[in-house]
Nucleic acid binder design. Structure first.
Ligand SMILES: [Mn+2]
Ligand SMILES: [Mn+2]
Ligand SMILES: [Zn+2]
Ligand SMILES: [Zn+2]
Lengths: 138, 138
DNA sequence: CAACCTAATTAGAATCATTCTAATTGGCAA
DNA sequence: TTGCCAATTAGAATGATTCTAATTAGGTTG
């Protein structure tokens, strides 16, 4: 499963003309089935022990490439570093104000059917309509 | 109207024991009825010509104080600097991926009744459940 | 299986957003 | 009016991200 997801993501990179490098394989494999929405820093620290040389810039570059080919999403939903999400089907998020951790919630139209994590103290529900504004579409 | 909102916000600061300074009056007056969700930088640049001395740190400090007394909200919904919102009743936001600009949307339960700004190209609708997670509540 | 072209990687500097620091100023309660 | 202590200030420090310029290495071609 981890392998299948990683292979699919690498395929998306390849199909878009990106080269498959050892660093990209490592990063994609690390991210592929991780539901924790890791930061670039976290991925870097997990990979550093194994991969001999791995630049921090490469982590950012690879994540940007993955975003371009729609193999992952960058989530900036609160202060703190951007988090990266390999889950590409539409879904919602539970976000902790304190530590920034994020948990997936199924996409459903029923307002309060959502099963929040055990012990989570809900403060607000926010809807964000994302896209590109008229002036930016020139 | 602008005066009434500003006075209310200053009252909230005063009631919480914060001192009313010339800088705080200026910042609050600038933010009070601004629907544009300005950044700290934008507020600073608007105020600088008038206020003789106004430190950038003071803008951040004052915005943090306003947040503490629930007179404004800090919104970090995409990359780029945090935006500040003096509108404290629950509402949603339309966010441009490109420039980060934000527009208010009325809080309504009907999913697609929302009147998006003219020419806005909608890409996704996202729901965020905000609060504090169990480990963070110790 | 070379050789080449060019994209990708690298370390470190640069930039941007935000917070901290330590010295000075000034609200406001007594 | 005085004095305490919070607020302000400029600038340094920090954290996140992007840029730069030199080196390395995919992968295509001969
Ligand atoms: Mn997710
Ligand atoms: Mn708003
Ligand atoms: Zn938490
Ligand atoms: Zn825009």
């Amino acid at each position: 499963m981890a392998i299948r997801t990683a292979e699919r993501m690498l395929g998306q990179l390849r199909d878009a003309g990106f080269k498959i490098t050892a660093q990209r394989v490592a990063i994609v494999t690390e991210l592929a089935d991780d539901p924790s929405h890791p930061t670039a820093q976290e991925l870097y620290e997990r990979l550093r022990p194994n991969e001999a040389a791995m630049s921090f810039a490469t982590v950012y570059n690879t994540l940007a490439a993955l975003e371009q080919v729609h193999a992952c999403t960058a989530l900036a939903l609160s202060q703190g570093p951007t988090r990266f999400d390999p889950k590409m089907d539409p879904h919602h998020h539970v976000v902790c104000d304190q530590c920034g951790k994020m948990v997936d919630l199924p996409y459903s139209e029923s307002p309060e059917a959502a099963a929040l994590p055990e012990g989570f103290a809900l403060r607000s529900i926010e809807k964000i309509y994302r896209g590109v504004c008229a002036p930016c579409r020139t």
